[in-house]
Amino acid sequence: MSSLKFCANISWLFTELPDFSQRIYAAASAGFQAVEAAWLYECDLKELQNARGATGVEVILINTPPGDVKSGDLGLGAVPGRETEFREGLDLALKYAKALECKRIHLMAGRIPLGSNRALVAKDMEAVFVQNLTYAADVLSKEGICGMIEPINTRVTDPRYFLDSPHQAAAILEKVGKPNIKLQMDIFHWQIMDGNLTQNIEKYFPIIGHVQIAQVPGRNEPDTAGELNYSYLFNTLKQHDYQGYIGCEYKPSGSTKEGLGWIKDYCSK
């Protein structure tokens, strides 16, 4: 079995530093060979390119723009009436991905509109999401980029998020039917919504394109106290011969660097 590879999510780690390009340098200094991030769009793209080039760190994943955050947006992929904005956001994400040689873009689904009943709007939102994902697949395939869809738990993190379980995501991916649109498994969200991680990893492994981690319930380092046995989960991924990076998308309990001992401890086992 090959060793697992970890990448730093610099939207969550190294936030002691205000600038994302500085965080790339910090991640490299801490031993990471790759980083991922949510939204880099307020950063100077040239500075990000310079940091990537100087460190040799790969950029593994970025998100599509969230939309109007002040108005409550968190992605637009499944939001009816926002298709043009979704395509504009995809173009911007693609610009950054190409400049940073990033091969994965998380295509954010978005939230149930305020005042709407989830059950009543679910069918329409799914249809919009399938349409947007199909469009994105064709655009991204020309650049050799994979699109990711990520279920986000609605019990704790975001009650209005449209895509909230691996089962829902898998059903949507089947309707899209494009090999370059895959499932992003954030173990934190999967545990909160469904648990049953061993069976869900087994069932959905063929369509998983990226993995992210955090302990439950605190969303801290994987070796902190919580519900999840990460030694077991990491070994499960190794047994399935997972070849991609595992994104460290957690809230450090203290300073980022002080909390990274778990990687060394795991790799020494």
Rank of each mutant, 00 (worst) to 15 (best):
N117E: 03
R118I: 01
A119K: 14
L120N: 03
V121G: 08
V121I: 13
A122N: 12
A122S: 15
K123M: 05
D124L: 12
D124A: 14
M125I: 10
A127R: 15
F129Q: 14
F129W: 07
F129T: 05
Q131N: 15
Q131I: 02
Q131G: 05
N132C: 08
T134I: 07
T134L: 10
T134R: 13
Y135I: 10
Y135K: 08
A136G: 10
A136N: 05
A137H: 14
A137S: 15
A137N: 14
V139D: 01
V139C: 11
V139W: 03
L140A: 05
S141V: 11
S141C: 10
S141M: 10
E143N: 12
E143D: 10
E143V: 14
G147F: 09
M148E: 05
M148V: 08
M148H: 05
M148P: 03
I149A: 00
I149Y: 00
E150F: 13
I152W: 01
N153F: 02
T154A: 08
T154D: 10
R155M: 10
D158A: 03
D158Q: 07
D158N: 09
P159T: 05
P159L: 03
P159G: 06
Y161V: 01
Y161N: 02
Y161G: 01
Y161D: 04
S165Y: 00
Q168D: 04
Q168H: 04
Q168V: 02
A169M: 00
A170S: 07
A170V: 02
I172M: 07
L173H: 13
E174I: 11
E174T: 15
V176E: 07
G177H: 11
G177S: 09
K178F: 03
K178I: 12
P179K: 11
P179M: 08
P179V: 13
N180R: 03
I181Q: 05
I181K: 06
I181W: 05
K182A: 11
K182L: 14
L183M: 07
Q184F: 11
M185Q: 05
M185I: 10
I187N: 08
F188R: 11
F188M: 09
H189T: 06
H189R: 11
W190D: 00
Q191N: 13
Q191E: 12
M193N: 03
D194C: 09
G195V: 14
N196S: 09
N196Q: 13
N196C: 09
N196M: 07
L197D: 08
T198R: 11
T198F: 11
Q199M: 09
I201S: 02
E202D: 04
E202H: 00
K203L: 07
Y204K: 01
F205G: 00
F205S: 00
F205E: 00
P206C: 13
P206R: 04
I207M: 13
I207F: 08
I208S: 04
I208L: 04
I208Q: 05
V211P: 06
V211A: 02
V211Y: 02
Q212I: 07
I213C: 07
I213G: 06
I213T: 06
A214E: 08
